[in-house]
Design a protein around this nucleic acid. Structure first.
Lengths: 217, 217
DNA sequence: TCCATTCGAGAACACTGTTCGCGAACACCG
DNA sequence: CGGTGTTCGCGAACAGTGTTCTCGAATGGA
């Protein structure tokens, strides 16, 4: 099997008929479509239609739909604007998470990709490099630093997903209301009895606490 | 729109032709299929074939495939064997995570469902009730306790997913090796130069640190 | 000019989730 | 016993999906 990731299969030399489009162009079309109609709308046919071509043509640029999804993830990761590493590590990592959250809220389909598929391409590797640079002076081992990166990504995506779904959570609370009405589950009832009065912890506070727990003060 | 979750739509009264199967039977067939061939193999036609019926028949028990996925998640959550709440909260929560991890390793399709869809049914609500009971004496607010539950679930699922994908991560490391060979990314190179010598932090240690960071000592 | 090589894309294949409609099966009622 | 109301089973169909095959068209280098 050739386990070559998308990012290593490069364009052939200048021989033969030149391509009318680029991989970046296909990726951009897919992102635009996902932004507009969600990840489920990103089918090969619809992306191709977005470009005014046939579905089969996309396979000249991409091996599969999954490849295209990986390209989309990494392309969005190009949007980070990170300062030079330096200074205390916690604020630096929080800034990474803040920007990650902003990117995910702008592209509502991203959290799902980040959570279920963990492929990092060039921009993802650059982000990881930045995090490791920020933690360069930290005494923790490499394993724990890599884990901190994974936890940061996962939690940022999960919290962003919660924010995005906050509107359409009627189904959820409908059933929870029923559970409360049933009488059992005293603690659940107490926790939710405040209605919307339950103060949701703020994003940065949560991430901050988790990172401090993981890496020490 | 009737935003009624699956768990509220109950069987009608004893009038009319009786059903030949039960919702639990359909759920069990779907779980068996997913255990054997993965979540992608769980199509309405294949689940129906597992039961020896036609695909359309399943819609007598379930409104959609998504409903069936929610039923599968909650059914697995019935597998928790939780002791009576009491004693210090940290070991009690760690026990929950340990069992969650075991369930997810046994059902490799579960992490994806837990991460992307957060519907909790009867057993999920029971689990949340247990966690809240364990934290009953804890001074944190309800919002933070609910968040702790979400973080526990998310992190357990994400770490289990990593373990499950550890074998087929050749693609990933192939590209990272290329990135290292490229010369840039000094910190990434240093972090991974140990090869397999990088000690992966242990599951319980990670979860423990995160929970302590979130909820205090 | 020729040609190896690449690209574009229509057609086809094997699927998918879901709906419609009809015949069959049952519980109840007179 | 014969309806009758209601539900169930499910074949057929619809609108899509990812992917492969194939072949004509386009190109740069010789």
């Amino acid at each position: 099997m050739d386990a070559v990731p998308v990012w290593l299969r490069e364009r052939r030399t200048g021989v033969g008929r030149p391509a009318e489009r680029s991989r970046a162009e296909v990726t951009a079309a897919a992102i635009a479509l996902a932004d507009r109609e969600g990840l489920a709308a990103v089918s090969m046919r619809r992306v191709a239609a977005e470009l005014g071509t046939g579905a089969a043509s996309l396979y000249r640029y991409v091996d599969s739909r999954d490849d295209l999804l990986d390209l989309m993830s990494d392309e969005v990761a190009a949007g980070y604007r990170l300062p030079e590493p330096g200074g205390p590590w916690l604020p630096a990592l929080l800034e990474v998470c803040r920007q990650g959250r902003a990117l995910m809220l702008r592209h509502g389909w991203l959290p799902e990709l980040v959570l279920t598929r963990s492929a990092l391409g060039p921009h993802g590797a650059g982000l990881l490099e930045h995090v490791l640079a920020v933690l360069a002076a930290h005494p923790a081992g490499a394993g724990r630093k890599l884990e901190a990166f994974a936890v940061m990504s996962t939690l940022t995506a999960a919290l962003a997903l919660n924010e995005l779904n906050a509107g359409s959570a009627a189904r959820q609370s409908a059933y929870l209301a029923h559970v409360i009405a049933a009488g059992r589950h005293a603690h659940l009832t107490a926790a939710l009895s405040g209605g919307a009065l339950v103060p949701a912890p703020r994003f940065e506070d949560t991430i901050s606490r988790v990172l401090v727990g993981l890496l020490g003060e």
